[in-house]
């Protein structure tokens, strides 16, 4: 699996875990800890898959997603949303905003791999 993944996650330990899991699978993972910085990075160029935490400092995951979907260039960008809140309300909000996949924390590493692969159009 060779693809570019942008991960926007404020919890550095979690970001490191995801980076390790996906890198081992062959992905090129870039990490941003701040919402605004992450959104700026997206403007420079779109990744193959965007992994977005819901609660972020600076700009929330939902705000970033809404902005992306509003832009035709990024309307189809595969976006995997993560949240630790684990409430149905957040999931619905994310789906309305046009999320591609949704995962609650904590997650199984294998599931994370499978979701990212699926979003890249690869078999699990």
């Amino acid at each position: 699996m060779a693809g570019r993944v942008l991960l926007i996650e404020d919890e550095s330990n979690i970001a490191e875990a995801i980076r390790f899991i996906l890198s081992r699978d062959g992905c090129e993972v870039e990490v941003e800890h701040d919402g605004r910085a992450g959104f700026a990075r997206l403007a420079e160029g779109l990744p193959d898959v965007l992994i977005l935490d819901l609660m972020l400092p600076g700009m929330s995951g939902l705000e970033i997603l809404t902005a992306l979907r509003a832009d035709p260039r990024s309307a189809d960008l595969p976006v995997l949303m993560l949240t630790a809140k684990g409430q149905g309300r957040d999931r619905e909000a994310a789906e309305r905003a046009g999320v591609s996949a949704f995962m609650s924390k904590p997650f199984a590493n294998a599931e994370m791999r499978a979701r990212v692969r699926a979003l890249m159009g690869l078999d699990a």
Binding site: E11, N13, I14, A17, A84, S104, P106, F107
Partner: peptide, 11 residues
Amino acid sequence: LRTPMTSIRAF
């Protein structure tokens, strides 16, 4: 609670 548990589980 979930945030530290996520790290613990993943690692």
